[in-house]
C-alpha cells in the first residue's frame, strides 16, 4: 500500500525486512575504505592515535603531567569525541549519498541512516579496543565490574549517533550549508567538552561551571569513568546522557515521519 502513511509498526517492519541491505552496505563501506591501503584498518586509527600522541606530548611538557596517567585519559576522551564528530559529518552526507536509491526505490529512509551509523559505531568500538589494549600494556587493566557498564552505554551512544545522523542528514539535504555550520559548531563544542583538559584543570570552578552546561560531556564521562577509574558513571551523568539521547531520538522520529515523503523533492 502506498500513497498513505505507514503505521509506526509497519514502518519498522519495512526497515527490518531490508536488514540485509543496510548491514551489507555498511560492511561494503568499511571494506571500501580499507581496501586500497596497506595499513588497512590502521588508517582510520592513525588520525586519533597521532592526535593523541601530539596532544599528550604537548600537554605533558607544558603541564608536567604523568604521561602514563594522561594518555589513556586523553584516548578515552578522543574516542568519544571522534564518534560524535563522525556522526555529524557522515550524518550530513547520509541521504545525499543515498540519492540514487531514494530516487528510484520506495523504502524507509531510516535504512540509509542505519547504514551510516553502523560504520561509525564500528570505528568507535575499534578505537575503544585500541584504548583498552593500550591501557593493558601500560599495566592498568580496565577489566572490572564497572567495565560492564560500557555495554548499555554503547547502546545509548548508538541511538544518539543514529538520531544525529537522521537530523543532520535531513538538515543538510534541505539546507546545503548545514554541514559547514555544524563543523564550526563542533569546533566550538570541542573546547567546551572535557576531551583534552587534564583532570586537575577540570576541577577549577570556572571551567567546571562552563562544562556543566554541555550535555556532551556526559558521554565522555560515561565512557571514561569505568575505563579510567573503574567507577560506575554517576546518576546525573546517566540521566543527562539518556535524556539528551531520548530527546534527539524523538526529534529524529518526528522528522522522519513528517518528511519521509518530502525528502526526495529536495535532493
Amino acid at each position: 500500500m502506498q500513497g498513505v502513511g505507514l503505521s509506526v509498526g509497519g514502518y519498522w517492519r519495512e526497515v527490518w525486512r531490508r536488514r540485509y541491505f543496510w548491514t551489507a552496505l555498511a560492511v561494503n563501506d568499511l571494506r571500501t575504505r580499507y581496501r586500497r591501503s596497506v595499513l588497512g584498518i590502521g588508517w582510520s586509527l592513525l588520525h586519533p592515535i597521532a592526535m593523541t600522541l601530539v596532544l599528550a606530548l604537548a600537554f605533558s611538557r607544558i603541564f608536567k603531567i604523568n604521561l602514563a596517567e594522561y594518555l589513556p585519559f586523553l584516548m578515552t576522551g578522543n574516542a568519544i569525541w571522534n564518534y560524535i564528530c563522525s556522526s555529524v559529518n557522515e550524518g550530513c552526507q547520509t541521504f545525499i549519498r543515498a540519492e540514487g536509491y531514494i530516487r528510484s526505490h520506495n523504502a524507509p529512509l531510516m535504512i540509509y541512516a542505519f547504514r551510516t551509523t553502523l560504520t561509525v559505531v564500528f570505528h568507535f568500538v575499534i578505537t575503544l579496543l585500541v584504548t583498552v589494549l593500550f591501557m593493558v600494556c601500560l599495566g592498568r587493566s580496565p577489566f572490572n565490574l564497572a567495565f560492564l557498564t560500557l555495554i548499555p552505554s554503547l547502546v545509548v551512544l548508538f541511538i544518539f549517533g543514529f538520531s544525529v545522523t537522521v537530523l543532520l542528514g535531513f538538515a543538510n539535504a534541505y539546507f546545503p550549508d548545514a554541514q559547514h555550520l555544524s563543523v564550526v559548531g563542533l569546533q566550538i563544542l570541542f573546547y567546551l567538552t572535557p576531551v583534552m583538559y587534564p583532570p586537575d584543570i577540570l576541577e577549577k570552578p570556572e571551567l567546571k561551571a562552563v562544562l556543566a552546561w554541555n550535555p556532551l560531556g556526559s558521554f565522555v564521562t560515561l565512557i571514561r569513568e569505568p575505563l579510567m577509574y573503574a567507577r560506575t558513571p554517576g546518576f546525573g551523568t546517566i540521566a543527562v546522557a539518556c535524556i539528551l539521547t531520548a530527546a534527539l531520538f524523538a526529534a529524529a522520529c518526528y522528522v522522519l515521519r513528517r518528511l519521509q515523503n518530502n525528502l526526495v523533492l529536495h535532493l
Binding site: Q2, E99, H105
Partner: peptide, 25 residues
Amino acid sequence: GIYTPTTGSCYVTGAAYTMLDLGVG
C-alpha cells in the same frame, strides 16, 4: 510510491516494483 500527491489520493494495492531509472542506486 516515490512521490506523494500534493492533493488527492493514490492507492496502490499489491507488492509494487518500479523499473524507472536504470543505473541509479
